[in-house]
Amino acid sequence: KVTYHVPNEEFARKLYKKAVDANLNVEIRVENGQFIIHIE
């Protein structure tokens, strides 16, 4: 399980798409202006 803290929405979207394309379980949320992405 990996967690990324991404300040940039564009990068967060790319990361999310890559994980989904790889059939990984992804959860994304915004906290204090940062995008928190959990990948399992």
Rank of each mutant, 00 (worst) to 15 (best):
E9K: 04
I36H: 02
Y4G: 06
N25F: 09
E31Y: 07
E40Y: 14
A19Y: 12
E40C: 12
R13K: 12
E10P: 01
V2M: 09
N23Y: 14
E27G: 03
D21L: 11
I28F: 08
H38K: 10
L24P: 00
Y16H: 06
I37V: 11
N23V: 15
A12T: 04
N8P: 06
R13A: 07
K14F: 08
Y4F: 11
V6P: 13
T3S: 10
V20T: 07
I37D: 00
V6T: 15
K14A: 12
K1M: 07
N8C: 15
F11V: 13
N8A: 04
A19M: 13
F35H: 01
A19N: 02
R13H: 06
Y4E: 05
A12P: 02
G33C: 09
F11D: 14
D21S: 10
I39F: 05
E31Q: 07
E40Q: 11
N25K: 13
K18R: 09
K1I: 07
V20R: 10
N23D: 04
N23F: 15
V26C: 05
N25P: 04
V6F: 10
F35P: 01
V26H: 00
E31G: 04
E40I: 13
H38Y: 14
G33P: 01
I37M: 02
I36W: 05
V2L: 10
H5L: 12
I28D: 00
E40R: 12
I37A: 01
R29D: 02
Y16T: 04
V26S: 01
N8L: 13
I37Q: 00
E40L: 11
I37K: 00
I39R: 00
K1W: 15
L24Q: 01
T3P: 05
H5D: 04
I36K: 02
I39W: 02
K17T: 04
I39S: 01
Q34E: 10
I28A: 01
K17V: 07
E40A: 09
N23A: 08
N8Y: 10
L15S: 02
Q34G: 11
K18T: 10
A19F: 15
F35A: 01
G33D: 03
A12D: 02
R29Y: 12
V2F: 11
L15I: 11
Q34F: 13
N23M: 11
N23R: 05
N25L: 11
I39V: 05
E27H: 10
E10W: 06
E27A: 05
I36Q: 04
F11K: 07
E10N: 03
I37H: 00
F35G: 00
V6S: 11
V30H: 06
E27W: 12
K18I: 13
D21P: 06
G33I: 09
Y4S: 04
D21C: 09
G33Y: 07
A22Q: 07
N25W: 14
E9G: 03
V20Q: 10
Q34T: 10
Y16K: 05
H38R: 12
K17P: 08
N25E: 08
H5E: 08
E40N: 12
I39D: 00
E40P: 03
N25V: 12
P7W: 15
V26D: 00
I28N: 00
Y16N: 02
N23E: 06
L15R: 01
G33V: 10
I36A: 02
G33F: 08
V6H: 04
E31H: 08
V6N: 03
V6M: 06
